[in-house]
Design a protein around this nucleic acid. Structure first.
Lengths: 235, 235
DNA sequence: ACCTGAACACCGTTCAAGT
DNA sequence: ACCTGAACACCGTTCAAGT
């Protein structure tokens, strides 16, 4: 009787369950803590049991990426291409922010996963429906690069490898050492301006969302201009 | 006599020599082949000998990044900001292309290395000298993102993890399986256009250099427009 | 046939023993 | 004091032995 309740000790393993547990592990402990052994332990399984559901670790990560990408909402209908693209990218951004390890995982992959291909294909479709030539749509997709998926390459990005374990607070980049302002005067000046409501040299950090939208709109407006001018690559 | 030539069997280890050997190893065999043990073997040294010159592997990679970044030429003098920025970024791009592992290594770092900070500081200086407000220069640097360093986030990038060992040829993305065109019709159409001198569905791949400059110029022209308009963030 | 423990070939790094 | 071999605590994955 006690045994009866203990016998189905695990809902049976499935690829779905493996991938979801892996995503949860990476979200909570950071991508560095994601090992086949740790994942197996989280699932109460022996490590080799995972290999019936994923071929190897690379395939595991590819599956994890697809789980996340599938969270992105479909494009808005009944609106112009610019609005549809903008909103969808911001939606993708919100998804990726919930899973800080994904952007690096995507970049590390040698081949895009099916879900990413589907997302990109749908994005191209939005441009095409908006009247873009195949030629322009092609170059525009390249120009957007990873921004299409809602992340940009911030060179000061701190929290991408870390898990949510320790101090969760997005603490400002600590105090800038006095040395810093001497060696990198232009960066220091920028940091001070970024923290304009603070008179000290200690920056509050930048408003990532503002910066992302600034660059996105700069691109979208340039793209709109090319589109209106009927731009075409010389060929 | 034979011994005489053999006794100084190794020029003494130095941080410099360790870093250069590490860069060479990553260039030739790929970043995945860079281990403390492999590196030590290349240098004819016992693994623990490396730890007198680098604190740990993370510090080793940081040093390798700085070796590469220092290869980038200083900005052109006697020219306008737009030309100076454009040429320097294209110069950075040429450097990073010689070391395909660097972009991912930079992104994986949690903290920018001194050489990167110096490069970015100098880039900000070019904008400032060109008459940009601190405010605009700040947002512009964010908007450029990793493009400042000459790489963009191409989602189809193949050769970043690979070494130069095997087939070096930048082979076109193989044949697109027939399935592909069905599942991702918009992407398939783009791929066909990209290989416009080829009637088959097998793409020649894209002209990375063209795409990079297309996006770079799109950004630079948008930035120029903001600058001329005296753009300022609402605050 | 399926499952899984042990083993293999690696890691980065610590530490104590040797000189 | 310096150097270094062995060891530790991990990896991903193979493989053969057990059921």
């Amino acid at each position: 009787m006690a045994e009866q309740t203990e016998v189905p000790r695990r809902t049976p393993l499935s690829r779905e369950r493996v991938l979801r547990a892996a995503v949860a592990l990476a979200d909570e402990a950071g991508i560095d803590s994601l090992s086949m052994r740790n994942l197996a332990q989280d699932l109460g399984v022996v490590p080799m049991a995972l290999y019936k559901h994923v071929a190897n670790k690379d395939e595991l990560v590819a599956g994890m990426i697809d789980v996340v990408i599938d969270e992105i909402a479909p494009p808005l209908a009944d609106t112009d291409w610019k609005h549809a693209v903008r909103e969808r990218i911001l939606s993708a951004r919100r998804v990726l922010q919930r899973h800080p390890w994904v952007s690096l995982a995507i970049e590390s992959q040698q081949t895009p996963t099916p879900a990413i291909l589907a997302y990109l294909d749908s994005m191209v479709g939005t441009f095409r429906t908006g009247g873009f030539s195949v030629d322009l749509a092609h170059h525009v997709m390249h120009a957007m690069g990873s921004r299409t998926l809602g992340f940009s390459q911030e060179l000061f990005d701190t929290a991408r490898n870390a898990g949510r374990t320790g101090v969760t607070s997005p603490e400002p980049p600590a105090a800038l050492p006095a040395q810093f302002a001497d060696r990198f005067p232009n960066l220091a000046k920028i940091a001070v301006v970024a923290s304009h409501d603070d008179t000290s040299v200690v920056g509050r950090g930048c408003d990532d969302q503002f910066e992302f939208e600034f660059a996105l709109d700069l691109l979208l407006e340039g793209i709109e201009r090319l589109h209106q001018q009927g731009w075409t690559s010389a060929r």
